[in-house]
């Protein structure tokens, strides 16, 4: 299984946490042709990204192959403190999933 590397930053300012995440992933839409073989490159993309904080869900994103390669994602939420740990879990279109953790600073 291809492993995605992820960078997550979560910063608290004025009661609002701003999360920025950058993943390394090709995000193949399934409609692109291989320039050498002329065959379609099979779809392989991140389909769901979920952010949980202490067991509650603060954001769930649903994507298809229209999101750019090496996806960037930023979002905001309230109700967290410095030092809280948040988890990002992402699911591929083929069903596998991975996750990463970040501490709010």
């Amino acid at each position: 299984m291809a492993s995605t590397s992820i960078k997550i930053r979560a910063k608290l300012a004025d009661d609002e946490v701003t999360v920025k995440a950058l993943m390394t992933h090709p995000m193949e839409s399934g409609t692109r042709k291989d320039s050498k073989t002329g065959e379609l490159v099979p779809a392989h993309y991140i389909q769901e990204v979920k952010c949980d904080l202490g067991g509650k869900n603060v954001m769930t994103a649903y994507w298809n192959g229209g999101v750019s390669k090496n996806p960037y994602l930023s979002f905001k939420f309230t109700g967290a403190s410095k030092g809280d740990k948040m988890t990002l879990t992402w699911v591929y279109n083929k069903g596998e999933s991975e996750s990463g953790e970040a501490e709010i600073s």
Binding site: T60, F77, G79
Partner: peptide, 17 residues
Amino acid sequence: IASFNLGEGGVPFVSTR
């Protein structure tokens, strides 16, 4: 292309490419 569901405490702001 993308749909973001906001949960508890979610702020209406998203950014992506």
